[in-house]
């Protein structure tokens, strides 16, 4: 019995808790991608870099606050800096829209032109981020590191396996829940939110109903900036901030958005968790887990790892491929904001 409990704790510690945190980060990021897709009708390759930019501003403000001794006690100071990061990112994406995308919108350019433009924006933003903060790792986590440490848990439960929950993981999940509820409330209950859904559903009819397309696009960008900054900061707090990571995270983000159906917010959230849990469970070494559950002499020799962590991005890719082969519109079918 105790072995089973140990096995469960082990899985929770190394698989479920990290999966939940990572899934929340992906869900928030994928929501931003899906939002842009639903309203502006293109896959935004610059989304990862938008996340990086927002995170960078948050980090800079965090450092400033830390230097002044301002903090949130047990919580990371970054939460205090987040609004500034969000505001700066909103300004950035609105300027990008004004200078880049609006022109193609007026021209009614095909989506692939938007796509290329977004790749240009991606490198521009990437350059800005590296220019300002440099290409190296940055840590900005402070406050209490753990909600519960492995040792505390062991003492509490008397089990051999420990369960550690990092503060950042707790914050990530809670923030994600709050943001998602707020977003859905906005989309389903407010006039502006409904007008965005209407615009995403049927642009021509939305125009006939007197919905202002410029406002819809602007609000979509504002939400994208908010989601991107929060997702990026949470990711940076949880892991660490490396500018190049935000390019690599693009693949899991797109996979999440496509699995759930591009343009469908509910799908993006589901997709985020599907991708996160697949990635974590495929790269998890099950040796110890099996050792607890199997009879003693059955214990496996190898790591029992399905895939080396070096290939974790391959998991997103395989998921993507499967979805494209089986149901290209995604689980929840696309284009329904």
């Amino acid at each position: 019995m105790e072995d089973v409990l140990n096995a469960i704790v082990l899985i929770t510690n190394f698989l479920i808790v990290p999966g939940l945190a990572y899934g929340s980060q992906l869900a928030l990021g994928a929501l931003g991608i899906t939002l842009v897709y639903g309203i502006l009708r293109f896959s935004n390759f610059a989304h990862g870099e938008t996340m990086a930019f927002g995170t960078m501003i948050t980090i800079l403000v965090t450092w400033f606050l830390q230097a002044r001794g301002v903090g949130l006690g047990p919580l990371p100071t970054a939460l205090l800096a987040l609004p500034v990061g969000i505001a700066a990112t909103i300004v950035l994406v609105l300027l990008t829209d004004k200078w880049v995308y609006r022109f193609y919108r007026n021209q009614k350019s095909p989506p692939v032109i938007f796509l290329i433009a977004s790749v240009g924006v991606m490198f521009l933003m990437n350059g800005i981020v590296r220019f300002v903060i440099g290409p190296r790792d940055q840590t900005f986590t402070d406050g209490e590191r753990f909600i519960i440490t492995a040792r505390e848990f062991k003492q509490l439960s008397g089990l051999r396996e420990g369960l550690a929950i990092k503060t950042t993981q707790g914050i990530t999940v809670i923030t994600a829940i709050v943001i998602v509820i707020a977003l859905f409330w906005f989309l389903n209950q407010t006039r502006t939110g409904k007008s965005m859904r209407a615009y995403s559903d049927n642009e021509d009819l939305a125009l006939l109903s007197g919905i202002n397309p410029d406002k819809v696009v602007m609000v979509a960008w504002i939400f994208t900036a908010i989601l991107a900054t929060i997702a990026g900061t949470l990711y940076g707090l949880d892991k660490s901030f490396k500018p190049f990571v935000y390019l690599q995270i693009l693949l899991p983000l797109f996979a999440s958005a496509i699995v759930g159906g591009l343009g469908n917010p509910l799908g993006a959230i589901a997709g985020g968790f599907v991708v996160a849990f697949s990635e974590v469970s495929f790269t998890f070494a099950y040796r110890k887990f099996l050792a607890y559950l199997l009879p003693e002499n059955w214990a496996p020799e190898g790591l029992v790892q399905l895939l080396s962590t070096d290939y974790k991005f391959a998991v997103s890719f395989v998921i993507l491929v499967l979805v494209l082969l089986v149901k290209p519109t995604g689980i929840f079918s696309g284009r329904a904001l």
Partner: peptide, 25 residues
């Protein structure tokens, strides 16, 4: 074979993915 014939974005995303994986490999 996998991504052509679908939306143009899908080819872009799929090629992004395969190139990352090839280099990782």
């Amino acid at each position: 074979k996998i991504s052509l014939g679908l939306r143009s974005d899908y080819l872009a995303i799929a090629t992004l993915g395969i190139s990352e994986i090839i280099v990782a490999m």
